[in-house]
């Protein structure tokens, strides 16, 4: 029955333009829609290159609780499901895209916390799905890095380990290296754009830590203030001796003066650890909600708000450039920028994935 269902739904319908399209003139254009037929709750989406019959295709990866699927484009409107990886015991929490890698995607599995990280790939003849267990345990955070690498932190305070693994062609880890752990739990990681040897982490104590990936040294711990708790670093770049960091603020409270800050750009002097706020990215007047989930790519930030709406900011212009209200009374539950083009991938819990051109 499940095979029949999957086959009948493996080709998506040609997308219909939603009723709210008129509220996003010139910014978001619906390109296509994927309907995930697995029936379980949809959790994540990503876009990556996959080599099919000798050609690299811009594919979409969808993750439901127990199935991860790879979709290849048939044309600009339609997608065909090519592979599905099934999980029986532990549900999928998130897709972990690894930049610079083709034909391989990682996933984090677990219930509330990550228990396993697996790489998903297919056999050399392209006929069978394969998965490799990369690490297991009490994993707190994971991020795919440029140069076929993956960083993860595991364990608790006194036995915390921060580990970098490099991928071999077969999807297994080729090399492992440990970074010096800070004396507080690392919650998220972020690369520093253009600096392959630098890595940032945000900690439970609202600090940003910086490592040298080549030597494993912990270089600095920088406090970013207690104004916004649970802030997460979404993007970082170094310019003129300063570190510019885009943070998301899930716990920011709305104020009359500033509105509701969802993202913030701060600048840190890594030598002195002093930091200053540069820009707050707030919701337009009349919009309510806090940051729930989001993604930053180049100078664009997208967030799903607690109201169920998606909001997009141009980080250079400094203001919100598009709003995407819930469609068919279904709140948005996650949003990702495509890694292969300028598309925005927006997902709903029931499995619908909408592909927008921005």
């Amino acid at each position: 029955q499940s095979t029949e269902q999957e086959q009948s739904a493996s080709l998506t319908e040609v997308a219909e333009l939603p009723a709210c399209q008129s509220s996003n003139p010139g910014h978001l254009q619906l390109v296509s829609k994927l309907k995930n037929p697995s029936g379980s709750c949809s959790v994540d989406v990503s876009a990556m290159w996959w080599e099919i019959a000798g050609f690299k295709e811009p594919c979409i990866i969808t993750a439901c609780e127990y199935v991860v699927s790879l979709w290849k484009p048939l044309n600009t409107l339609q997608w065909e499901k090519l592979y599905s990886w099934h999980f029986t015991e532990v549900p999928v929490l998130q897709i972990v895209p690894v930049p610079d890698v083709c034909n391989l995607v990682c996933v984090a599995l677990g219930n509330l916390e990550i228990r396993e990280i697996r790489s998903l790939l297919c056999s050399s003849d392209g006929k069978r799905e394969k998965q490799v267990l990369l690490s297991s345990g009490n994993i707190k955070a994971v991020l795919g890095l440029t140069g076929r690498r993956l960083v993860s932190s595991s364990g608790t305070l006194c036995d915390q380990q921060v580990e970098i693994m490099t991928f071999a062609e077969d999807g297994r880890s080729k090399e492992k290296q440990f970074l010096m752990p800070p004396e507080e739990t690392v919650l998220t990681f972020a690369e520093v754009q253009g600096m392959q040897e630098a890595l940032l982490g945000t900690t439970i104590m609202n600090n940003i830590v910086i490592w040298n990936l080549k030597t494993g040294q912990l270089l600095k711990k920088m406090h970013i203030g207690d104004r916004y708790q649970a802030s997460v670093c979404r993007k970082a770049y170094s310019e003129m001796g300063l570190l510019f960091v885009v943070l998301s603020h899930p716990c920011a409270k709305e104020s009359e003066l500033l509105g509701s800050p969802v993202f913030q750009l701060i600048v840190i002097n890594p030598k002195t650890t002093l930091s200053v706020g540069v820009m707050l990215y707030c919701l337009p007047q009349g919009q309510a909600g806090r940051f729930l989930e989001g993604d930053v790519k180049d100078h664009f930030a997208a967030a799903v708000l607690t109201s169920g709406t998606i909001a997009i900011w141009d980080l250079l212009l400094g203001h919100c450039t598009a709003l995407l209200p819930p469609i068919s009374d279904q709140h948005w539950s996650f949003v990702k920028w495509s890694g292969t083009d300028s598309h925005l991938l927006a997902g709903q819990k029931d499995g619908n994935i909408f592909v927008y051109r921005y």
Partner: peptide, 23 residues
């Protein structure tokens, strides 16, 4: 922002911090 609020700036901060930090 006011540069004075951030203290002295170094263009080679990454290399300098790597030399200063414990191995």
């Amino acid at each position: 922002c006011n540069q004075a609020d951030l203290g002295p700036i170094s263009l080679n901060w990454f290399e300098e911090l790597s030399l200063e930090a414990p191995p």
